[in-house]
Structure formats: structure tokens, C-alpha cells
Design a protein around this nucleic acid. Structure first.
Lengths: 187, 187
DNA sequence: CAGTTTATGATACAGATGTATCACGTAGGA
DNA sequence: TCCTACGTGATACATCTGTATCATAAACTG
């Protein structure tokens, strides 16, 4: 993960991984029999790291946990802010690009993405029922747009166009528009 | 470009490129002395292809050319719809990910991205002055959000989550919200 | 204690990769 | 006609790659 984030995924050979981890090449072979397994392992690890970050961010929002605060917490957690999250997202981006040309992995990623879409759409619908989102919004469409925005912001931050704070503000601005501001209700 | 789009950028060795193009390895070496130059050449070629697609799309919008129609034409052209644009964007995505860990290339891409941001922000400001965008919008912020959305939609289409048509509709929906619908004026 | 798991070390090997070199042909312009 | 540029072919070379195979030792587990 550190290698992918700093020097690119193409630099992550078995030998480089072993060196970076300070272990023998033999040990890398021991746990991840092939390179494919190594990559899948990293991808799974990244997934766990991101999930954990989201969970923590949501928990930090505090009470009361409305659909709106939940969405703010979960989505802003996907924007890299510190060095560690930046590393994670950078490595994830590299792996993600790989999956685009690897049909088996692509299908898996697609399932995940659709699950996330359903998840966010469901929460937006809940927020709508709670009167926090305008009635004429289509929750699924709003979720799709919001998630695409998050992806794009993520990418911009990784490229160094915005810092994490600016990107978070942009996302917050979008969410405020969707949900009528942090403290206010939209009929 | 074809190799990067179909089998991934890591499969684009000098020999594979020569084979795909139906020429000798020697000729690839002859024009692109090193692999780095080859990659830069592809990146430049992709840039030209995308620019051309945008230009054509804008031209196809027909008269009258308002800031709004211009933005619709330019931005929707960035969503892959047919096989060729899909190939281009896929190859571009692969190269883009590479630049993230290659500081010199990253700086170049950043300049380009900031230029695009200024460009779109300028047109949104024009649309605002023409009364097509609400007065309380910050053109630069609206441009940033819109461009990030485009990037995200692009990525989703490449991953196969939406087809080009659906993604274009999502983008259009966002633009309609920003600019008060395709034919209607805000205030 | 015995046996299994976890870990290391030193190599080996076939294949791919970027790059370089030498020779040869073909065309176009001075 | 001579010369320069364009293009092809065959091949060489050092390096890196993923993977495999020896033997060996420490640590845990029943």
C-alpha cells in the first residue's frame, strides 16, 4: 500500500514489497502465494481501512443521529484529509484503475458500488421522509450524483488540485443544497 | 492507447505496442526513443482526441450559442458514450493514475485542471450575468462541483455502473438545477 | 516432549522488459 | 548522382520479474 501510494502500483513487485516491509521475499511468498493474491489482499485491506474511517467519522458526528448527520459523516469521510487517508485513497485509486481492465475484479467492484448506491439512496429517502430533503428529489438520482461528486472530489484532492478541507467544503455545500443546510428543514 | 484500454497500461510494453500497430519494435524505438517519451506521446494524443470531441459536441449544439448551451455541449462530451470515447477515456484514466505518483507529470496535469476550472467558472459567470444562473451561486464553486461530478460520472461509466446515456442524464439534471432548466430563466 | 506453524536464507530459472547496435534497403532533394 | 532522412530486420544485453526449491531455525500447541 505504501509503495503504491508513493511510487505507483507498477513499482510494487514482490521484492519491493518484502523490502518495504522489512521481511524476506520468502515470507511474502509464504503468505501471498502469488502476486495476484497479494493484490487482492491489499484491495481487501484498503476496503477495511476505508470502512473503518467511515465508521469513525459517523460516530464522531454525535447525537442526535439523523439521516442527514449520518450522510454527512459517511460521505465526508471519503475525502482524503490527512496523510494516512491520502495514502489509502491513492493506493485504492491505483487498484481501482487496474480493475477496469480485469473483468473478474470489475464485477466485484461493481457489486460494491451498486451496494453503496442503494445504501446512500436509502438514507436520502429516509431524510426525505423526515422532511430534510425536498419532496421532488429522486433519492436514487440524488445518491448517484452525490456519489459521483465524492469520487470526483477524491480524485481532485489526490491530484493536488484542492486540499482535503476545500474539497470537504465543496461536498458540504452540495449536501447543504440537497438537504437544506445543516440546521434547517425543507418542508 | 488500444492496449491500455483493453488490457491495461501495464501490458503496453514496447514490443506489444509494435505488435498492435503492426510495425517493428525498431520503428517504435525510432519515433519514441524511450518508453517515457512513448507514454508522453500517448497522453498528448489523448488530450487532442478529447479536445476534438468537445469541440465537435459544442458545434453540434447549434445556434444560438449561449453560455449555457456551450457548457452543456462541452461537459456532456466528457462522458464516454460510444466505444471510441470509452477507449479514449479508459486509456486517459490509466495514464492519469500514473501521473499521480510521477511529480513532474502531476504538475502538468494540475495546470491543465486548473485551466479547465477557470474556463468553466468563467462561462458560469457569463451565464450568471445573462440571468441563466441564480445570483447567489459562486461561479468558481459551482464550476468545481460540476467538474468533480463529471469526473466521477466518467469513472462510473468506465466501471460499467451506468451507461453513457444514464450518466449524461445525471449530468444534465445537475446542470438543469444549476442553470434553471434547458429553456427557462432564473429570475 | 513431539509436532506443527511461522519465519528466514540462499539460490535457481525461465521469461519479459527497456535499450542498444549493426547492417540493409528505399526514397527524395541538392 | 550523392547524400541525407526514413524505415526495417535481426539480435544482443543487462536487469527485473514471478515463481520454485532446497535446508534450517524459532515459536507455539497439544
Amino acid at each position: 500500500m505504501r509503495i503504491a501510494a508513493s511510487r505507483g502500483l507498477h513499482a510494487a513487485s514482490m521484492r519491493e514489497v518484502a523490502a518495504e516491509a522489512g521481511v524476506s521475499l520468502r515470507l511474502v511468498q509464504y503468505y501471498f502465494h502469488t502476486k495476484e493474491e497479494l493484490l487482492k489482499g491489499v484491495l481487501a485491506h484498503l476496503g477495511r481501512q476505508i470502512t473503518e474511517r467511515v465508521t469513525r467519522s459517523v460516530a464522531a458526528m454525535g447525537e442526535p443521529m439523523t439521516p442527514r448527520t449520518f450522510l454527512y459523516g459517511a460521505l465526508t469521510a471519503l475525502i482524503p484529509t490527512d496523510d494516512q487517508s491520502r495514502r489509502i485513497m491513492l493506493a485504492y485509486q491505483a487498484h481501482y484503475t487496474l480493475t477496469l481492465t480485469e473483468p473478474e475484479l470489475a464485477a466485484e467492484g461493481l457489486t460494491y458500488a451498486n451496494g453503496l448506491l442503494d445504501f446512500v439512496a436509502g438514507h436520502i429517502r429516509q431524510a426525505q421522509e423526515a422532511g430534510e430533503v425536498a419532496a421532488d428529489e429522486d433519492p436514487r438520482q440524488a445518491a448517484a450524483i452525490t456519489l459521483a461528486l465524492v469520487t470526483g472530489l477524491q480524485s481532485s484532492v489526490l491530484a493536488g488540485q484542492y486540499d482535503g478541507r476545500t474539497a470537504t467544503e465543496l461536498l458540504t455545500s452540495h449536501l447543504d443544497r440537497l438537504m437544506g443546510g445543516p440546521g434547517q428543514q425543507v418542508i
